[in-house]
Nucleic acid binder design. Structure first.
Lengths: 109, 109
DNA sequence: CAGTTTGGTAAGTATTGGCTTACAGTAAGT
DNA sequence: ACTTACTGTAAGCCAATACTTACCAAACTG
């Protein structure tokens, strides 16, 4: 259900960069934004989107907002990808059975 | 490198739908487009994008273009996702070592 | 308390990209 | 040969969205 959200959210390059910068551990916004080609508010907006998608979590520490990776947010996307490999076998089985019975079963149209 | 492309390509809902419709096996364009909320040319355009991304392959059969899933196209994206779980362990190790040495090592700023 | 750091939000802009209609081309059927 | 089925491409339109600047609020610092 939400793998669609994760896909959409991670499709953006700079948002993905924000996400990747959290690999090394939790960081405050200004640290994430440092050295990025976009403004700090832009990073803030991306973090909001990432958070809403469950890909990131936030805690306050004084005036700082510390953002951290939420790997569970990637789980559904991962499962979705895996499902393609699963039904590769399934499709093969069905196809095999179909071919065995007759040569008429048109998949077309 | 191309996981970025896959991410971007699969982010679109209708394009993802096109992709999913190929799960059941190879199909001609008109079969894929049948019952979709968008026009047939739209589907054609999506198929082109999917093909360029290596997520789909095409063969001609008379006047028909038969499109089929290319699961290998998902491999890099899968690996990228996996890498997050890998370095979860790595980060934990580093964090553990850091904490052991001192309590000063600020990750901030 | 004044000034600085940190960061979220608003408003407005501009680019990206997905959609449609129209057209062209190729193969199959009659 | 004429028609029909199938599909890709072009041109143009429109909506989504990523970015900017400006602003405001809250918490440290001196």
């Amino acid at each position: 259900m939400t793998y669609e959200v994760a896909l959409n959210v991670l499709a953006d390059p700079t948002r993905r960069e924000v996400f990747e910068r959290l690999r090394g551990g939790p960081r405050p916004v200004h640290a994430i934004a440092a050295g990025m080609p976009v403004s700090r508010p832009a990073v803030s907006q991306h973090l909001k989107v990432l958070k809403d998608a469950g890909l990131v979590e936030e805690r306050s520490e004084g005036v700082r907002r510390i953002y951290a990776l939420r790997r569970e947010g990637l789980a559904e996307l991962r499962d979705w990808l895996d499902s393609f490999w699963d039904d590769a076998l399934l499709a093969f089985k069905i196809e095999a059975e179909r071919t065995h019975r007759q040569t008429k079963g048109r998949i077309d149209e």
